[in-house]
Amino acid sequence: HMTFVALYDYVASGETDLSFKKGERLQIVNNTEGDWALAHSLTTGRTGYIPSNYVAPSD
């Protein structure tokens, strides 16, 4: 899985969403939902949907 870094803070709007903080590292599990991606946080160990425009690929 590619690793991504959060560009902004995001507060989950539902139970299936994943909250994260700017700078948090995430792995995209499934990116077939258009503007949303299923992601796993390497920081918190949690998995949920995130807005895909809130993250960018990290080196």
Score class of each variant (00 low, 15 high):
M2S: 09
M2L: 11
M2C: 10
M2F: 11
T3K: 04
T3G: 06
T3P: 06
T3D: 07
F4R: 03
F4K: 03
F4C: 08
V5D: 03
V5R: 03
V5I: 14
A6C: 09
A6L: 05
A6N: 01
A6P: 01
A6F: 01
L7E: 07
Y8A: 08
D9K: 01
Y10F: 07
Y10A: 01
Y10D: 00
Y10N: 01
Y10E: 00
V11Q: 11
S13T: 14
S13F: 10
S13P: 08
G14Y: 08
G14W: 07
E15C: 10
E15K: 11
E15Y: 09
E15P: 14
T16G: 14
T16S: 13
D17K: 10
S19H: 04
S19F: 05
K21I: 08
K21R: 10
K22E: 06
K22S: 07
G23R: 00
G23D: 05
G23P: 00
E24K: 00
E24C: 03
R25N: 07
R25L: 15
R25H: 13
L26C: 03
Q27H: 12
Q27E: 11
Q27K: 10
Q27N: 07
I28R: 01
I28V: 08
V29A: 08
V29C: 14
N30M: 14
N30A: 14
N30G: 15
N31M: 15
N31F: 15
N31C: 14
T32I: 15
T32E: 10
T32G: 12
T32S: 11
E33I: 12
E33W: 12
E33R: 11
E33Y: 13
D35M: 12
D35G: 15
W36H: 06
W36G: 03
A37T: 13
A37V: 15
A37I: 15
L38H: 04
H40C: 13
S41Y: 00
S41K: 01
L42C: 11
L42R: 02
L42I: 08
L42Q: 07
T43C: 12
T43M: 07
T44M: 01
T44A: 02
T44Q: 05
T44E: 03
T44W: 01
G45N: 07
G45A: 03
G45V: 01
R46H: 09
R46K: 14
T47G: 05
G48V: 01
G48I: 01
G48D: 02
Y49G: 01
I50E: 01
I50V: 11
I50Y: 01
P51R: 04
S52T: 15
Y54E: 02
V55Q: 04
V55S: 04
V55N: 05
A56T: 14
A56N: 08
P57Y: 11
S58K: 07
S58M: 15
D59H: 12
